[in-house]
Simulated scan of single mutants.
Amino acid sequence: MTFLTEPFALEFVQRALIGGALVAVLCGVVGTWVVARGMAFLGEALGHGMLPGVALATVLGLPVLLGAGISATVMSLGIGALQRRARLSYDISIGLLFVAMLAAGVIVISHSGSFATDATAILFGDILAVSAADLVLLGWATGIGLAVAAAAHRPLVALALDARVAAVLGLGPRLAQAVLVGLVTLTVVASYRAVGSLLVVGLLIAPAVAASRWTSRLPSTMALASVFGVASVAIGLVLSWHAGTAAGASIALTAVAAAGASWLARVALTARTARTRSGSAVARA
């Protein structure tokens, strides 16, 4: 047990665990919708889309979170505008803005010679540096995200099943889509401090994929995805502590490994159940 509990004797690791758990719960709920809608690329694109705003905020001495929020919001609105005005498909709209925002961020960074370390923290996070103020922010973001997801549950379910049916039923698929994009934006912006803009996608997607193997209802998937996410945070921190690896990357890799293990366990259980039923049928015959 000492192997598992030793890291959490330190206060900064405790804060990392709490912050990571808040991120995991928010990602578990929002990620379930992302997986249901096949929008995994959006989370990755928004992670890159924050880069120019964060870079400009850092250079100008403004709050980094403000720059990240503005940049991600601009990208989210831009995706919707390209779909409506330019009649481009969803993935093409994301791809164009993905490249444009990433290029703009790199250009800003290239003009600031002292920005390399900050860029690394943005991309890969520093969960061990999470402060008490960060925990308050993550708490608010998680609370708001859960409240919005609960309030928009019916339109989001209809959107996940069939947008055309949602429109016929008057459930506002366009508004539901905007809410979902907003939830992904909130999750990525609020979480990048803990696990980085690139690695947040691991907690956004992998726990939801792992949970979907064992549940048939969305609320159950969200709950189980949150459990998988929190467990990934705890295990990732322990592995990072003892192996001397980057904490954020260790957490993301643990989450992806959990998704793979969940798939293998489900396949094995299904095969075993099939053999049992086949044996029972032969015995009865």
Score class of each variant (00 low, 15 high):
residue 153 H to Q: 15
residue 260 G to Q: 09
residue 46 L to T: 05
residue 14 Q to V: 08
residue 81 A to G: 00
residue 116 A to F: 12
residue 5 T to I: 12
residue 155 P to G: 13
residue 283 A to W: 03
residue 130 V to C: 05
residue 242 H to W: 15
residue 10 L to R: 10
residue 69 G to P: 02
residue 61 G to I: 06
residue 179 V to A: 11
residue 284 R to F: 04
residue 114 S to E: 13
residue 45 A to F: 04
residue 118 D to L: 12
residue 59 V to R: 13
residue 277 R to D: 07
residue 191 S to H: 10
residue 29 V to R: 01
residue 218 L to V: 15
residue 49 G to S: 05
residue 196 G to S: 09
residue 249 A to L: 09
residue 22 L to Q: 11
residue 167 A to Q: 15
residue 56 L to S: 07
residue 89 S to N: 11
residue 77 L to R: 00
residue 158 A to M: 08
residue 25 V to N: 01
residue 218 L to F: 11
residue 69 G to S: 14
residue 175 L to V: 14
residue 281 A to P: 01
residue 32 T to S: 15
residue 20 G to K: 02
residue 142 T to N: 09
residue 59 V to K: 10
residue 260 G to V: 08
residue 263 W to F: 09
residue 147 A to N: 13
residue 24 A to Y: 00
residue 181 V to C: 01
residue 31 G to K: 09
residue 56 L to G: 09
residue 148 V to C: 04
residue 143 G to V: 13
residue 39 M to P: 07
residue 182 G to K: 12
residue 239 L to Q: 03
residue 123 L to K: 05
residue 264 L to Y: 01
residue 225 A to K: 01
residue 176 A to Q: 03
residue 11 E to L: 13
residue 70 I to A: 13
residue 169 L to M: 15
residue 211 A to L: 11
residue 74 V to D: 01
residue 243 A to W: 10
residue 258 A to D: 00
residue 37 R to L: 02
residue 8 F to S: 07
residue 157 V to S: 03
residue 147 A to H: 09
residue 246 A to F: 03
residue 233 V to T: 04
residue 169 L to P: 01
residue 186 L to I: 14
residue 32 T to Y: 07
residue 272 R to L: 07
residue 79 I to G: 07
residue 100 A to W: 04
residue 195 V to K: 08
residue 193 R to C: 01
residue 246 A to W: 03
residue 111 H to Y: 14
residue 160 A to E: 11
residue 73 T to I: 03
residue 195 V to G: 08
residue 18 I to A: 07
residue 21 A to D: 03
residue 94 I to P: 01
residue 10 L to H: 14
residue 123 L to D: 08
residue 119 A to S: 13
residue 94 I to E: 02
residue 68 A to P: 00
residue 38 G to T: 10
residue 131 S to Y: 15
residue 36 A to G: 05
residue 179 V to R: 03
residue 103 A to H: 11
residue 112 S to W: 07
residue 31 G to C: 08
residue 218 L to D: 07
residue 50 M to P: 04
residue 100 A to V: 14
residue 277 R to C: 00
residue 60 L to G: 02
residue 78 G to R: 06
residue 216 S to P: 00
residue 52 P to D: 06
residue 129 A to Y: 05
residue 141 A to I: 14
residue 254 T to V: 12
residue 275 R to A: 14
residue 134 D to Q: 14
residue 125 G to D: 12
residue 27 C to G: 10
residue 185 T to I: 02
residue 108 V to L: 15
residue 148 V to A: 12
residue 260 G to T: 10
residue 73 T to C: 04
residue 64 V to K: 08
residue 187 T to V: 05
residue 174 R to G: 15
residue 209 V to P: 00
residue 110 S to W: 05
residue 144 I to T: 10
